[in-house]
Amino acid sequence: MTELNELYQEVILEHSKAPRNFRRPATTNHTAEGYNPLCGDRYTVFLDLEGNAIRDIGFQGAGCAISKASASMMTQLVKGKTKAEAEKLFEGFHRMVTGEAGNGDELGKLAVFAGVRKFPARVKCATLAWHTLQSALDGKQEAVSTE
């Protein structure tokens, strides 16, 4: 597989075209906005936290295939997890895409992003949603919004 095909794997392209949880959940109590001023990618991550548990998560916004697919898969994986579990995933993901750690075998589905480490200019795309999630998790509790 060429580096390019490794980066743009079928799963990633599929998620970028049909992102999961691409919505504002009915109930959200934590939100954060993530912005990459370099390329203009912009996402909002919405959380419905119950204590330390991520009861629901959604995102909205626009950006490149890598950032959008990363956000989509992130929402699938952290839904139902605790804050600590989500943070541990982010840590492993970050190490994988920056080339610090192995192939991401322990990261399950997220291993499809291992190709990013060959493209240093795209690391920020892959991690944008995760940084935004972290910021939402750290943020002060907002007034609950129910639509």
């Binding site: 390019l4 743009y8 370099l38 390329c39 950006g63 490149c64 295939a65 890598i66």
Partner: peptide, 30 residues
Amino acid sequence: GDIHPHDLGTVLDQEGIAIRTGHHCAQPVM
């Protein structure tokens, strides 16, 4: 089409082609 300029830029770079992708420091134009 629907291809994000950043993804296009990465593919072109692999071909040795350097272009700029982004808002070109002209966000009001975008």
